[in-house]
Simulated assay, not measured.
Amino acid sequence: MSRNLVELAGPDVAADFTRETIVVVGTGAIEHHGPHLPLNTDYLLADTIGGSAVDQAAADGLDIWRLPTLAFTKSDEHSWAPGTVWLDWDTMYKTCVEIGRAVNTMGAGTLVFANGHGGNTALLQVVLREIRKLYGLKTFLMPTLIRTPPPAGEGLDERNLGIHGGAAETSIVLHMRPELVDLSRAERWVPEHLADFEYIGFNAMPVSFGWLSNDFGPAGVVGDATQATSAFGERLYDASVAQAVASLHEIARFDHKQIG
């Protein structure tokens, strides 16, 4: 049975949705990913992994449905590059809050954003609180791409800087849609100098900084796509779907009253 909410008739939503119903919205992006990856890389992550997770969670018995994945989101760090389509922060903020309003009107009780683009994260965290405040929904944000080591013997070395168009994203697109990847155009685009800072950086370093993707060079990539393999991509895909399914099960049993 399809879990695409938009394939239901309106009266069925009204009759069947309860406060136990979970609605998942993927948040992707259409943005520059270097010369070797397609513009829809982050959209593929959100839509494909998020959709598989919803299907598996529903097969496990969860009352869960998915709305269409948002393609155009907050990608202004890549706005310098042709092909990027982005929303201003306030447009995306209002859009997501109004999706929350609609989900509340449906009678569902939980809204989950399954995010495939790191540039959306901070804004979506603000959105979660606003929807919670306005409509009382349980709101969650979960990633669709897990961070996991490469298969044994593949020696991935991006100095913890593979955040955009590097080995992980290139590998998972190689697994999901290999015809969209051109490894002959891949290079190592790692800002080695940044790895030497003790506090400033990405990936949970204590000091973050504002950046545009072309701050790191004209390719607009941060990572080493030459190390990508379809085997690593398959491992990432399987682990990402498994984590998303497990996350949805935790979300289903989460109770705010138990955290007070």
Score class of each variant (00 low, 15 high):
G50A: 05
E187P: 00
F197H: 15
R129K: 15
R159K: 14
Y199E: 15
Y135F: 13
T148F: 07
A195R: 03
L5Y: 04
E154R: 08
G116P: 05
E77G: 10
P11A: 00
D196I: 04
G107C: 04
S52F: 07
G210L: 10
A122W: 09
G50C: 02
M92V: 12
E20M: 04
H32S: 14
S208N: 12
A29H: 05
H175P: 08
E77D: 13
T148M: 05
L37V: 08
E192K: 07
L174A: 10
D12I: 09
I22L: 02
T27V: 15
L44C: 09
N120G: 10
I49L: 12
D157L: 08
L183V: 01
P38E: 07
P206Y: 12
A242L: 12
N120W: 03
F216E: 08
Q125S: 15
H33Q: 11
V6C: 12
F140N: 03
D215R: 05
S184N: 10
Y199L: 15
G119V: 02
S240K: 10
G220A: 00
D224C: 03
N203S: 14
F216Q: 08
C96A: 15
W80Q: 14
E250M: 13
V245M: 06
Y43R: 02
A29V: 08
D224T: 07
S79E: 07
G109L: 05
G10N: 06
L123C: 13
T91H: 10
E169M: 05
L44M: 11
N214C: 08
G118M: 04
G220W: 00
A71T: 12
L5H: 04
L137M: 02
A122Q: 12
H32Q: 15
L236C: 08
A167M: 06
L128K: 13
S75V: 06
H33T: 03
E187N: 15
G10H: 09
N214V: 00
A58N: 00
G118K: 01
T110V: 03
G201Y: 01
I30G: 02
A246C: 00
K257V: 11
W65V: 11
R132Y: 14
R188E: 09
T18E: 00
L62K: 02
P206W: 11
I146S: 14
V173S: 05
Q227I: 09
L248G: 01
I64Q: 04
T121S: 13
H193T: 10
Y135R: 01
K257L: 14
A102I: 09
A58M: 02
L180R: 09
R147T: 13
S2N: 14
P178W: 03
L194E: 01
A242F: 09
V13H: 05
V221P: 00
A108K: 00
L156F: 11
S79R: 08
R101Q: 14
I146R: 11
F140T: 07
D60A: 15
G217T: 01
L70F: 11
T18R: 01
G100M: 02
E198I: 11
N203A: 14
